[in-house]
């Protein structure tokens, strides 16, 4: 449904996005993850036909983003990360404005506006001025706006940013509901756990490069190839053990506290076994050797840091 091929965007010498390629199948929710300034918004603006690429191509529902922006605009609903609203307009007028802009005939407009207001739980705000709405309400209104022409593809740039926990949970529920309506959704965030439990596939981007892309399970497996170790060692061998770990190129970020060493290990079970064997073989008195459970977020942080640095 969405395909990006070798998308590159340069601003002078600065490369904002570097040779990005990925594709999203129909009916998927694709989570686009990366820290601030990674190039998420640039890619999203490119897909929303608002940005000309330095090179590369993009296709949405078979239409070229560059060659045929009008056809693309018909099939996408776009929500920017930072948007404004018109002054002096009421909520229903705002939606009517965009409905007319999407050429929806008057006969069906009334019903559609009532439906999206209902879907986003905004019916009670129908006659409020849009510039008087709270941030969360504005986010919902903007999402309502992207739905008025019932597009099969939704491109949402950080729809949950700046929302309180309850509103975040509601936004998640809403996206899941939209997916059940058969829509393909590209949603970005700088926080992985926020997306991990409802997206079907993930792309991780940092400094303009795609680090990993695939289904959630796949990515999690990739991320799980990275462990955090906690080793308790008898006092006398502490220095020796630390020296061994430091000499090992699969081990990073070693910290010592009391007589416990903590370290990050690139690799899976075999790597761990090898390390334990190596320590014991070198005569270190290992008291305990255990893997520490990491949250998805922590793994994400260490992985991205590892790859970029």
């Amino acid at each position: 449904m969405i395909e990006v091929r070798n998308f590159t965007k340069r601003y002078g010498d600065f490369v904002a996005v570097d040779d990005l390629s990925f594709s999203i199948g129909e009916g998927e929710i694709f989570g686009f993850i990366g820290p601030n300034g990674a190039g998420k918004s640039t890619t999203i603006r490119f897909l929303a036909t608002l940005l000309r690429p330095s090179s590369g191509e993009g296709y949405i529902a078979g239409h070229s983003v560059v060659e045929d922006p009008m056809a693309v605009r018909k099939v996408i609903g776009f929500m920017p990360d930072d948007f404004g609203v018109y002054d002096g307009m009421k909520v229903w007028e705002f939606l009517d404005f965009f409905a007319v802009a999407y050429k929806i005939p008057r006969s069906s407009r009334k019903k559609i506006i009532a439906e999206v207001l209902e879907l986003l739980d905004l019916t009670h705000k129908r006659d409020d001025y849009v510039n008087g709405l709270s941030k969360g309400m504005k986010q919902r209104l903007c999402l309502a706006k992207t739905l008025v022409h019932d597009p099969p593809v939704l491109i949402l740039d950080e729809p949950a940013s700046g929302l309180d926990p309850r509103a975040r949970a509601e936004m998640k529920a809403l996206l899941t509901e939209l997916r059940s309506m058969g829509k393909t959704i590209l949603v970005s965030s700088h926080i992985l756990p926020e997306l991990a439990d409802f997206v079907t596939s993930i792309g991780i981007i940092e400094r303009g490069k795609l680090l990993a892309a695939g289904s959630v399970q796949e990515i999690q497996r990739q991320l799980r190839a990275h462990r955090r170790l906690q080793i308790r060692i008898l006092d006398s061998d502490l220095a020796h053990a630390e020296a061994i770990l430091r000499a090992d190129d699969k081990v990073r970020d070693i910290t010592g506290y009391d007589h416990t060493l903590t370290a990050e290990v690139d690799g899976g079970d075999t790597e761990m076994a090898r390390l334990l064997q190596h320590l014991i073989g070198s005569g270190v008195s290992v008291q305990s050797f255990a893997e520490v459970e990491m949250t998805l977020d922590e793994v994400f942080m260490t992985v991205t840091k590892g790859i970029v640095n």
């Binding site: 929303a48 036909t49 608002l50 009008m70 018909k74 776009f78 948007f83 965009f98 802009a101």
Partner: peptide, 8 residues
């Protein structure tokens, strides 16, 4: 951005 992504 909102205006330009419509069909206007």
């Amino acid at each position: 951005g909102l205006l330009l992504t419509t069909l206007l």
